[in-house]
Amino acid sequence: MIEFKDVNFSVDNKIILENIDLTITTNEFVAIIGPNGAGKSTLIKILLNLIPNYTGQVFIEGKLNSEWLKTERIGYLPQKEEYDTKFPATVMDIALMGIAANKGVFARFNKQDKLKAMETLDKVGIKQFNNAQIGSLSGGEWQRLMLARALLTGSRYLILDEPEASIDKSGVNSFFDLLSELHKQGKTIITISHDLHMLNKYCTFLVCLNKTLHCHTETEMLTADHIKNTFGEALKLIEKDY
């Protein structure tokens, strides 16, 4: 279970998040929606303890997030990962990053680790690229690699920041199919997305955010008013056109 209790965050007196009280129960497939600048990525970064100067508290499984993250991992897919396309890393190298912390300092990756990574790359459908340089991957292949890395942490939680960005329509469908499969296998998934059609099809719980929480409800309970209240006039800007 993940709990946000009265979380507030501002930058230079500009309010980014205000009075966020939110509880996400285990094994939900949660979608966070909202217009650009609504604070969606910030909310996730606060959960991951990547932003220090917020007020309020965040709990993961009853422990403060900072304490919980000292011993446990969250499988995270960042919106955009900064990397040099010429960086000398293969798909396997980046996938193994998910296992690295569990290996401890000084320990090297062994055959079993690589086998486990191969199985996961197979699961996300990019096993054949295991020796490819990361710079040669397409957008969809890259997102699948990010998912493989997140899965390899062995975490019960998967957090995705706009995973559909830079994937074509068929790629998005199969990516969300894969997430749905993982959800059925017991993962708690939290995803930020602009793709309302996709979220309606797969997600079980919806969080409408625009600095403050406008709604947090079961997806089938979502009404047009909820959407309108969250996005206001900006709604037409966030509908994805394939």
């Binding site: 990547l50 990962e81 900064e82 980046i94 990053m97 300092v105």
Partner: peptide
């Protein structure tokens, strides 16, 4: 030799490596 794994991920992306618990 001893810290190759950490040095590799440090040069790749320090922030992401930290999220994944790598020291």
């Amino acid at each position: 030799t001893l810290l190759f794994k950490e040095l590799f991920y440090m040069t790749y992306n320090m922030t992401v490596a930290e999220v994944f618990g790598i020291r």
